[in-house]
Simulated scan of single mutants.
Amino acid sequence: MSTQHIATAAFVKVSIGSPSGNRVAQLIQRGGVIPGGVDEQQLERLVDRGLIEAVAVEDADETEEQEDLDEGVYKGVSVKDLKADLAKRNEGREGDAVITPVEPGNRPQIVAALLADDAE
């Protein structure tokens, strides 16, 4: 999980860039995400004044595949056992009939490949 800041005021002006170098001002409307590059001290001042708020956000790459995939009968099965089941199913298969996960070492892809094979 990571933290983002969201504008709660109608408009919030933030300065992006190094405090000792060139800075660029940007206006953010209510509900808009405060962009990266804003100084931590500025963020703290804006939070204290009630102009923005910090919100916890789940990282997309961690949750997208895990939430979308219902593991069904494979829930709780170890990766080692999943790979063994995959190898057993591939015995005697050739060409396009061989089950090949998109990422062979990644559990969600292995489960997805086995579920697709079950559906056939």
Rank of each mutant, 00 (worst) to 15 (best):
K13T: 15
S15E: 12
S15D: 11
S15Y: 13
S15C: 13
I16C: 01
G17T: 01
G17P: 03
G17A: 10
P19G: 11
P19A: 12
P19I: 13
S20V: 12
N22D: 01
V24S: 13
V24D: 06
V24G: 05
Q26T: 09
I28P: 03
I28W: 00
Q29G: 12
R30H: 10
R30W: 01
R30S: 15
G31A: 05
G31H: 07
G31F: 00
G32K: 10
V33E: 15
I34G: 03
G36E: 08
V38K: 00
V38S: 00
D39I: 08
Q41S: 12
Q42T: 09
L43E: 06
R45I: 13
R45W: 14
D48S: 08
R49H: 01
R49Q: 09
L51E: 06
L51A: 09
I52T: 07
I52Q: 02
I52H: 00
A54F: 12
A54H: 11
V55I: 09
A56K: 11
V57S: 09
V57T: 06
A60M: 08
A60I: 01
A60R: 09
D61M: 05
D61E: 06
D61S: 08
D61V: 01
E62I: 01
E62T: 01
E62A: 12
E62W: 07
E62D: 10
T63A: 13
T63N: 06
T63C: 14
E64Y: 03
E64D: 05
E65C: 13
Q66W: 15
D68A: 15
L69V: 00
L69H: 01
D70I: 14
D70H: 11
E71R: 05
V73M: 15
V73I: 12
V73W: 09
Y74S: 02
Y74R: 00
Y74L: 07
K75E: 14
K75P: 04
G76H: 02
G76A: 03
V77S: 00
S78W: 00
V79R: 07
K80W: 04
K80C: 03
D81L: 14
K83M: 12
K83F: 04
A84T: 07
L86K: 09
L86P: 05
A87T: 12
R89F: 11
R89T: 12
N90A: 14
N90R: 03
N90W: 03
N90H: 05
N90G: 10
G92Q: 08
G92P: 06
R93P: 02
R93A: 03
E94I: 11
G95P: 07
D96M: 12
D96E: 11
A97S: 07
A97C: 02
V98R: 12
V98F: 05
I99R: 02
T100W: 00
P101G: 05
P101V: 05
V102P: 00
E103K: 10
P104V: 13
G105H: 11
N106V: 08
N106S: 14
R107H: 04
R107P: 02
P108T: 02
P108C: 08
P108L: 09
Q109E: 15
Q109G: 15
Q109I: 06
I110L: 02
V111A: 01
V111R: 02
A112N: 12
A112H: 08
A113V: 09
A113G: 04
L114Y: 11
L114N: 03
A116L: 06
A116P: 02
A116K: 04
D117T: 03
D117Q: 06
D117N: 11
D117G: 08
D118S: 05
A119H: 10
